[in-house]
């Protein structure tokens, strides 16, 4: 793990410490995906979040919002200090992203299965308005249980939206347990192919691999793109990695925070 990934995770821990709660595992599997998008891919202006020609990013798995908040703060959409206030009374940052409430957040997510449909709408809008904007939607693997995702997938393909890029944070764990056990998604890549997407797979913690994939878009002209990112839930905290119990923690106290910071120092 390089210094930047470690730093962004330290911001997440700041937020967990400040709010005393958060979706730990679901956030930490996402860090490199969001990092590469904002560092290398998305055309956005932190000082002008409503710039019409910007690319749109929707974190459809809204419960991973601490990853988004950490990156948005780092990019200057709002002060880094705001992270420490997450979920507190009157805070700018809540336990799920809210459009209009937090600069840089494009959609209010948290109820799963909404983001891809919103993304299809945004991609269609860009086409009608002849804007160069692209739309990126990150979904969770458990989120793919929702039927509305597949309704939207059919539509994205029907409309040949090659300005739409969907990504799955495939960490193989949902709230109750393993995705394979709760509702198996395999063969996942074939599913998306059969729904009309051009599909690629990548190690979702490999910054160079993500960069290579996400800077050569669309994967195929005339088709929406799907990047399946194989990730580790809780990545960076050895005691949380692959542990469903770390999906969400409601009472995070000082010893937990100390343990997280220590684990992060030695994370690979």
């Amino acid at each position: 793990m390089d210094a930047r990934s470690r730093y962004l995770r330290s911001l997440v821990i700041d937020a967990l410490e400040g709010g005393g709660r958060g979706h730990v595992g679901s956030t930490l599997s996402l860090i490199e995906i969001v990092r590469v998008l904002y560092d290398d891919v998305l055309r956005v202006r932190p000082d002008d979040p409503a710039w019409p020609d910007r690319d749109r990013f929707i974190l459809s798995k809204g419960h991973g919002c601490l990853a988004l908040y950490a990156v948005l703060a780092d990019k200057g959409f709002f002060p880094v200090e705001a992270l420490k206030e997450q979920c507190r009374p009157g805070a700018m940052l809540g336990g799920h992203p809210q459009r209009g409430h937090t600069p840089g957040v494009e959609a209010s997510t948290g109820a799963l299965g909404h983001g891809l449909a919103l993304g299809v709408g945004m991609a269609l809008a860009a086409r009608l308005q002849r804007r160069p904007s692209r739309t990126f939607v990150v979904m969770g693997d458990g989120e793919l249980d929702e039927g509305s995702v597949w309704e939207a997938a059919m539509a994205a393909s029907k409309h040949r939206l090659d300005n739409l890029v969907a990504l799955v944070d495939y960490n193989k764990l949902q709230s109750y347990g393993s995705v394979a056990e709760v509702l198996d998604l395999e063969p996942l890549a074939d599913k998306w192919r059969s729904f009309g997407f051009a599909v690629a797979e990548v190690d979702g913690h490999d910054v160079n691999g993500l960069r290579n994939r996400l800077t050569a878009l669309p994967f195929e002209s005339g088709r929406p793109s799907m990047l399946i990112c194989h990730t580790v839930k809780g990545k960076g905290l050895d005691f949380a990695e692959g542990q469903a119990l770390w999906h969400h923690k409601a009472r995070i106290e000082a010893p937990d925070v100390a343990r997280m910071r220590q684990a992060l120092e030695t994370a690979r």
Binding site: A117, L118, V120, G147, A152, A155
Partner: peptide
């Protein structure tokens, strides 16, 4: 004409409305 997919239709419409439609 988007098919028998009301959940998607509302989301898609909302996405377009966010960009001024």
């Amino acid at each position: 004409m988007e098919g028998v997919s009301e959940a998607y239709v509302i989301g898609m419409a909302a996405g377009m409305a966010m960009d001024g439609f």
